[in-house]
Design a protein around this nucleic acid. Structure first.
Lengths: 118, 118
DNA sequence: CGGCATCCCCAAGGATACTG
DNA sequence: CAGTATCCTTGGGGATGCCG
């Protein structure tokens, strides 16, 4: 899968997965959606610095890769909710050890911080 | 750590780790070095398509992040060997679930292939 | 052999404005 | 609200050549 961004074969499973999550905000999107389904605007607020265009394109790629589900409600004002698919949930779980590694080996230049991080 | 590429704070452990492995060939380098220590030229041959410049810069970044160790032997002709540090080994282990996810969810468009993939 | 120095390119991201 | 549509910038990566 991974749409047609890398049409050929992958060297291994890792860079296949890396292709799916390549994108500046994708793992952050996954993390946010893992906690709760979100509307577009909520997601924007949860990711300080992301622009509408980039967020929209990332969401579309993740949807094409079967990672997130897009549910459109026919209301006024319009409302769209994004959530993780089962596959997205397994991807998130597979990222957890990497997050633990980062917390242990990288996030230790921070003197003190409050609240847990993924 | 992650040198000075992202001087500020990270949102979470995952994107801290993502910073360390961001680079087209880095996870492939990790994979290769996990099996055995390699010389520069060996590494080049193991990564078809990588250029000298990019391989060298990736190796230096990984070295700065404490992932790989560079051992220079004072011989003629010159000889340099790269190997994983203990920290690099733990990073590789943390990447394993992601590789498994990729094998299971992405690498299944390939009809048949021989030999195991990471 | 194991690099660095240069030049170049292009796709991912960002900024801004507009719309159903 | 939830996006498109444009235009523009940046830097990671590729190509090539030279050096200790």
């Amino acid at each position: 899968m991974a749409t047609t961004r890398r049409p050929g074969a992958y060297h291994c499973g890792i860079d296949a997965a890396m292709d799916v999550i390549s994108g500046k905000w994708k793992v952050l999107i996954l993390w946010a959606l893992a906690e709760q389904a979100c509307r577009f605007g909520e997601l924007r607020r949860l990711l300080p610095g992301v622009t509408e265009k980039v967020l929209a394109s990332h969401l579309r790629e993740l949807e094409a890769d079967g990672i997130v589900h897009r549910e459109e409600y026919d209301e006024v004002p319009p409302r769209v909710e994004y959530s993780l698919t089962p596959r997205g949930a397994t991807l998130n779980a597979a990222l957890e050890p990497l997050g633990a590694w980062g917390r242990e080996h990288v996030i230790d230049s921070v003197p003190e911080h409050s609240g847990p991080m993924p």
